[in-house]
Design a protein around this nucleic acid. Structure first.
Length: 146
RNA sequence: GCUACAAGCCUGGCUAUCGCUUCUUAUUAAUUUAAGAGGAGGAAAGUCCGGACAGCUCAGAGCAAUGCACCGGUGAAGAGCCGGGUCCUGAGUAAUCAGGAACAGAUAGUGCCACAGAAAAUAACUACUCCGCAAGGAGAAAAGGUGAAAAUGUGAGGUAAAAGCUCACAGUUUGUAUGAGUAAUCAUAUUUACGGGUAAACCUUGCAUGCUGAAAUGCCACGUAUAGUAUCGCUUGAAGACGGCUCGUCUGAGAUACAGGGUAGGCAGCUUGAUACUGAUAAGUAAUUAUCAGUACAGAUAAAUGAUAGCCCACGACAGAAUCCGGCUUACGGCUUGUAGCUUUU
RNA sequence: GACCCGGUAGCUCAGCUGAAUAGAGCAAUUGCCUUCUAAGCAAUAGGUCAUUGGUUUGAAUCCAAUCCGGGUCA
């Protein structure tokens, strides 16, 4: 019993120390209409089953994310809000490694995730796919800096 | 117990961790950090009506266009709501009850009414009466069959045969008078007429409507090209306000098209208002209103309420604010109360 | 937020100033032709005229409400 409790306590300790990294405030979301238009026009993209990912790497910029779903596939606003919330949550918990890498290379990244399927997802699926996207981004960042 | 209707309430709860957003306080070089408080709906939806609010010269005349159409009340207003009238449908012997109505005008005019039928609107095929040898002429509209709809119906008089041609009764209708009612309208008396329907066909009459909508509008910041080509114009007036057209009034030096360039950031508007709900009192048949007391009230801007774990009721529908209100319509799970109907048991 | 169109056969469309059997092309099925297939010829079937009410003697058409789809406005 003792080792497992110690492990849980350790986890709590870790979480409370690095808490400030798991944020997603205004400055970390992609908010400018201009930037989003530029991303769709000029940015690069790849597909990963439920998502289409638009991204562009810039110098002297922050890591900013946006997400959305088509109102053609999801007629009700409730469903679109649901998807956006799930994607934001998954990104919030997993983005830190990307941030560290970008800090190392002194780069910024704009990224936009569009959900393209027609059925409502659950959190596990989104979480797994966002993890894969981050791995893909790692490869891309390393290639572009090299 | 089930079904239907009406009214009200809820949108799982608690604990832990991480996270979003607004405000307040403290703090910081800094929207940095910390603490506290608040954070979607009955429909937030559809955008079907009506406003508030804002701007445009406080908005001129005529035509056109659109909408509305029994009466009264209510309210900021309405195609809403409440009450009343008339007509229609159903139930009932009846009194009456329930439901519905886009309920001005068909005698202002125009159009349309398939097939059938003689004829679908100033009716005449068969049949009828009279004249005539006959062909035909005249009269008249009872009877016939068709159709959704056929010239008000029944009886009597009348006639050559007939006919509201005349009379009685009945129905509808026009006006007048009296009475009731705020009025629509109703009752009674008298009078006029009875050559269809359709205005959710055009239309006529009456009334209403200035236009544009928070992407309105005001302010600040940043930036480019007061450039290029073509056409029109510069007081002999382009173009605009002005909306579909014309006139009129006002403004008065640029306007339009093409190609190209720039910006698309912030603040205000922005949430407490014709506020909503609850209770009491008063007015009213009611909708609703007045007074007093209490409670409540998000404000984002790629757009905030979420994720994970555990426990408890037991699996939680429809669904997410975007300037704000009053209605209407549509979607929909559960609980409570009331009313009505059916069934079962005592 | 403001506003405008459309919904007819399996598909693409007519018909929408009301009149009864709702048409056309492609596709489908059957037969003929051909050694067989295609093409061609002949025939057949297939429709809740988006839904629900209303007006009318009569509605795909006119009117109202709803559902679904598409588009315009910086």
């Amino acid at each position: 019993m003792a080792p497992s409790r110690l492990k849980r306590d350790g986890v709590f300790l870790f979480v409370s120390i690095v808490a400030k990294q798991f944020t997603l405030g205004k400055s970390e979301r992609l908010k400018s209409r201009k930037a989003i238009d530029a991303l769709f026009k000029k940015g690069k993209r790849f597909s990963l089953t439920p998502f289409r990912v638009f991204y562009s790497i810039n110098k002297n910029a922050a890591l900013q994310i946006g997400c959305g779903a088509s109102s053609r596939n999801f007629k009700r606003a409730v469903d679109r809000n649901r998807i956006k919330r799930l994607v934001r949550e998954a990104w919030r918990l997993q983005k830190n490694s990307t941030q560290l890498l970008l800090n190392e290379k002194n780069l910024g990244l704009h990224i936009f995730l569009v959900y393209t399927e027609k059925d409502l997802p659950d959190y596990d699926l989104i979480n797994a796919q966002v993890e894969k996207i981050i791995k893909q981004l790692f490869i891309i960042i390393n290639e572009s800096s090299a």
